[in-house]
Design a protein around this nucleic acid. Sequence first.
DNA 1: TTGAAAGCGATACCAG
DNA 2: CTGGTATCGCTTTCAA
Lengths: 325, 325
Amino acid sequence: MATIKDVAQLAGVSISTVSKYLNGGHVRPEKLEPIRSAIVQLDYRVNPIARSLKIRRSHSVGILLPSLAAPFFSSVFMASDKVLREQGYHSMISCYYADHGLERDYLSYLLGVGVDGLIYVPENLTAEEFQELTLHRDVPVVMVDRMIPGVDADAVLTENKKSSCNAVSRLIEKGHRRIALVGGPNSVLTAKERLAGYLQALELYNILYDGALVFSGELSFAFGHQSFLELMNTGTPPTAVFSTNHDITMGVVTAAREQGLRIPEDVEIFGYDSVNICAVMTPPLPVVYQPEQEIGRTAAAYLIERLEGYAGASRKTRLPCEMIL
Amino acid sequence: MATIKDVAQLAGVSISTVSKYLNGGHVRPEKLEPIRSAIVQLDYRVNPIARSLKIRRSHSVGILLPSLAAPFFSSVFMASDKVLREQGYHSMISCYYADHGLERDYLSYLLGVGVDGLIYVPENLTAEEFQELTLHRDVPVVMVDRMIPGVDADAVLTENKKSSCNAVSRLIEKGHRRIALVGGPNSVLTAKERLAGYLQALELYNILYDGALVFSGELSFAFGHQSFLELMNTGTPPTAVFSTNHDITMGVVTAAREQGLRIPEDVEIFGYDSVNICAVMTPPLPVVYQPEQEIGRTAAAYLIERLEGYAGASRKTRLPCEMIL
DNA sequence: TTGAAAGCGATACCAG
DNA sequence: CTGGTATCGCTTTCAA
């Protein structure tokens, strides 16, 4: 690869002049052409590594998330990517596949590798771990979909509790009394909040809480599947299941079908996200829909503000959700 | 952030000694402790940018793909990520959302940004564009799932033609004679090959090809949906549809259900990938399953070999697929 | 305007 | 072993 030095030599000017040419400084008109031609001839491109080292900016932002496959994240980050790109930033995604060790590793890696900012969907990190990792690095972080309580960083979330309460309330109004919940682990704030919404709805309608109907665990197909089977094996199985994650919902639905149960006649299921997929089913599965585009855009906007120097207090935004019936 | 210089000063040794300490050189035992302690005290971490500039290696590889949401890619790259990590590489994903301009931009960006190698799922780039972008950059590229014909690079693909032929043959053996195909654009090699497999099956069974039954277009839900509606509006609609992509399949199935058609009684549908999701349906949709893990592992292995200096001829590997019925 | 030179943070050669 | 120094490629003063 040709360097700026080669270009300078070939064009018969100094390195600084080429640099100015490259970065929009003032260069005498008659020197423009030789430089341009040298660049083309040598197929020169600036080395972003060297540039980053010098200017301490890479114009790239990292996105760290627990799972690639979730359609929810895909939509969210497509939206943030667009906003970021319009402002001249490239986004680089890293996935930690819901693994705690990997989550630490990648966070640490991204913080150090030179991205200007970070959009982060946390899962298992404690506030202490996060503080330690981010200490002395001034890389702004915006959390999305989840947040680590006690951490001072911008966060874009949705109204998990309220939306869940609404969803469960609807099931109750349709006559259900034994409603199960299958959701993520309590270490994930979002899962905890959705559980809280479920409990609130029960309370609202004076329905006794039954611990045997609540399953909190891995955000996976397997967990949803297994939980459903266990639910059905108790003496008095639920008549409805509120499933608060895409993969889990797939597992729950599969298990139900395997058992020969009709949805919703034999057991009603209410999901979260995955609107497209749930619409595929007959009849369509009702779901809570989170405003994915807006989440992504907001997160990107927050990050860009920080990158441009905004240093105000951290913002925690809650976006409202819709029920798709 | 503290630099190696600060550490050297605090520990009372030279910069070079600290560097040796960091990189496993020989350092007199009594100097070990002061250095270690200075590092801890200053919370020092090496600056990967500076290191990259010097050693011309970043120990990171880029992954460039057209879509995040496809469960297929997620599985593939989870597998390659694992292999890469075990060899000390971090992977950074970029998604171009099936946009031609973005595909060029991101490819160019990744090639320049300092990743040591690239795993790339191409979609719209011509061989010329690719050559031009990779010219003078010695970043090894391994293509996955698709390849750009005429480009000299490793590629890990599956037996698209054969698998498609098998799938369509099965439909024929079940008695279908009017079988539609809805798949990706002809610019995507994979889509073209699957179409070729479809044609081969027709020929094998002496079924006349009917152009009105073949839809090639966007790899999207919308395209699948619309194509199905158009198919059903012709005078003699197909009795079966072979859909060669996840999103398209979702669109096709939704459209069928919306029309009140029963699957497979009224119209039989055969999909590709998305095993989990297709298993959710009642009855499960038959699909062609590609060995995702193996694709990912193979691609990573190829890339690592290149990174370690292997300079042999480019390899094009075809992995066999299974039918999940 | 222009260019010489310092410096970003780290590595590695080489003399001691 | 150790440490001074050149170097990686680029940006940015600063003096001319």
